[in-house]
Design a protein around this nucleic acid. Structure first.
Length: 610
DNA sequence: TACCCGGAAGCAGT
DNA sequence: TACTGCTTCCGGGT
């Protein structure tokens, strides 16, 4: 199925021993963990000189090597916002290639502590190595030929044919990561190399990926930097080989049809890449613990994915569309506010079979309404089976989930507000309302429908008898802006139909101080509380009990959100009566015309309410 | 400009 | 043939 190997054999550049190298001070010729505080300072100084970056104030990283090695990327970023990435990567390279520092082979070349692996030798353009392309380069023909026969060919053109044809990003030209990456991969055999030489040319012309960009080629045509594997001690070679081989095997194994776990799914593919630091220039863990990853080279990743799927026109735009389908499956979500950063919502190993990939359109996996009418407007032909109804999505991270949905809802409402100029987009917007599933997550659509007369108030009630819309005329009067929707919610009954499902309830209320019970106390949801949900600070484990017209019922117990509580109590103490605050809130709401309120609740909490 | 969003239609593989 | 998992395109937003 896949065209695996290019017909032409790539001739790697011949490197000699005198290629440019990065030489660390002799005092750093040991594992970073063994550095003293002073040596850490020396390293920082060396980095600032080496990478032409601003001098790093020693007090920013005032620690010994052991502590230094424990710093995460985020720690580096926090301490040195400008160049933290670079330093982190530089350190990681040192750590990973530590053996080179003391290897007799390295000293053969330089006579001292040589670091033959610096990807950061960028005197002229100090760009974070994060932005560097993933460069697969065959740095040494000797090595290539030495190892090539022993390495099996992969089934798909993702991974290297030979271990030694792929190296960590040690010699990249950082001028343009995308170009550089694409360039490289389009010329190196076995690694993302095109099925035929013209494939990339084709794709380059058809998408923004600049798969093989002549300009980039020029840029990359400068002599390869210090990747001469002759400088690499055997231990390093072995390390790299093992690393590559394991990555190769991991991806390759999973792409073999007989393995049963074909790496055809995007999340699987990404996860495979994440498993190997070799691909960190494409995609890397931002926080492996939290399953947050970052795409460092969108074009490169897209190109790689395209190779995997034999889609030569793959772009990040398309890849990200596929990623967005994972949102609703709760497989991957966007990390709000962080570009190119996503999060696995669960351990990839635990992703269920039926949960894989995008859902077909017009289906509702979160049953909310009584079965008698739940699907009346959902566009579903048949009601899903009971087990599907009971399907429980894995828990979301409140912070991510809420803020994300709040943002989404807000955007969506704005986008699909019933103004002439903001009709739903897409190829066939006329089908929009017909197919739209009415569930609680899509309240904005309901608002849209209401404001456009697509659904009568009674129909809406029929769908969800526990939602009351006081005045559709009022809403229509506001329809020129955004669809205002006054919702009185008593979702308790709805929850009966989806007992274990953690829901997001988007409520757009002008005057609807929703209330809820927690710990036998009654709370009105006010602005500060909403903020907690937006920020994910509030516990999702509570229930919504009833609509409360009485704004005097101020929340008393905010113990589930201690941080916010402090802030609130500080800001609220004696400054404003509850009713004043409520009024101010209403006017603010009317100003904004939207109050996306995101509430998560669970069955466990509901019992306290009923 | 790059990234992000989700609807819609269609395609390829199972 | 139904379904999945995208891919492609789109209009719009940040």
């Amino acid at each position: 199925m896949f065209n695996i190997w290019p017909s032409t054999i790539y001739q790697p550049p011949q490197l000699s021993c005198n290629t440019q190298q990065t030489v660390l001070p002799a005092s750093l010729a040991k594992h970073p963990q063994q550095w003293t505080k002073h040596e850490v300072g020396v390293w920082l100084k060396w980095c600032s000189d080496e990478f032409c970056i601003e001098p790093i104030p020693p007090d920013r990283i005032d620690m010994n090597g052991k502590a230094l090695c424990l710093l995460k990327r985020s720690d580096f970023m926090e301490r040195i916002p400008k160049n933290g990435d670079l330093l982190f990567n530089a350190l990681q390279k040192l750590i990973q290639n530590k053996v080179s520092l003391t290897s007799p082979m390295s000293s053969m070349c330089s006579g001292g502590a040589t670091v033959p692996m610096s990807p950061f030798h960028i005197k002229t353009e100090p760009i974070s190595p994060l932005l560097h392309p993933l460069v697969f380069t065959s740095a040494n023909t000797q090595t290539t030929s030495m190892h090539a026969p022993s390495i099996p060919r992969p089934c798909v053109p993702i991974l290297p044919r030979t271990q030694s044809t792929i190296l960590p990003p040690t010699c990249s030209n950082p001028v343009n990561s995308n170009k550089s990456f694409s360039n490289t991969v389009s010329t190196v055999p076995g690694i993302l190399s095109p099925a035929s030489s013209n494939v990339d040319t084709e794709s380059a012309s058809s998408d923004g990926g600049s798969v093989s960009d002549p300009e980039g080629q020029e840029n990359d045509s400068r002599p390869s930097e210090p990747t001469n594997e002759r400088f690499l001690p055997t231990t390093i070679k072995t390390e790299i080989q093992h690393s590559i081989q394991s990555a190769f095997q991991a991806v390759n194994n999973s792409t073999r049809p007989e393995s049963g776990t074909e790496c055809r799914l995007l999340w699987e593919f990404i996860h495979q890449l994440l498993q190997n630091p070799m691909f960190s220039q494409l995609v890397c863990w931002e926080s492996e613990k939290e399953l947050i990853f970052r795409i460092n080279n969108p074009t490169g990743l897209a190109h790689m994915w395209g190779k995997q799927k034999n889609r030569t026109n793959m772009t990040y735009e398309k890849l990200s569309r596929a990623l967005r389908y994972y949102y609703r499956m709760n497989i991957i979500k966007k990390v709000s506010g962080k570009r190119l950063t996503y999060k696995f919502m669960q351990q990839p190993s635990t992703i269920q079979k039926g949960q894989r990939g995008a859902k077909p359109h017009n289906k509702c996996d979160i049953p909310l309404f009584p079965s008698s009418n739940r699907f009346q407007y959902s566009g579903l032909k048949d009601e899903p089976s009971e087990d599907k109804i009971q399907q429980k999505p894995p828990p979301l991270s409140p912070a991510l989930n809420d803020s994300h949905h709040e943002l989404e809802n807000h955007r969506h409402l704005k986008r699909h507000s019933p103004t002439e100029n903001s009709k739903p987009s897409g190829r066939n917007s006329t089908k929009y309302l017909q197919s739209k599933t009415l569930d609680i997550e899509n309240y904005e659509h309901t608002a849209y429908q209401l404001a456009n007369g697509d659904m009568s108030n009674s129909n809406f009630k029929q769908l969800s008898p526990n939602f009351h819309i006081p005045s559709t005329s009022y809403e229509k009067s506001k329809a020129s802006k955004l669809p205002p929707l006054m919702v009185r919610a008593n979702v308790t009954n709805d929850v009966k139909y989806s007992p274990d499902v953690k829901l997001n309830l988007g409520v757009y209320g002008m005057h609807s101080p929703l209330s809820f019970h927690q710990n036998n106390k009654h709370h009105v949801i006010n602005d500060s509380l909403k903020q907690q949900y937006y920020e994910g600070m509030a516990s999702p484990n509570f229930s919504i009990s009833q609509f409360n017209d009485d704004p005097q019922d101020e929340p008393e117990d905010l113990s589930f959100a201690p941080k916010k509580q402090r802030l609130d109590s500080e800001s609220n103490s004696g400054k404003m009566s509850p009713s004043d605050e409520e009024k101010q809130q209403v006017s603010k709401d009317e100003e904004n015309n939207i109050l996306p309120l995101l509430i998560n609740y669970k069955k466990t909490a509901i019992s306290t309410n009923s």
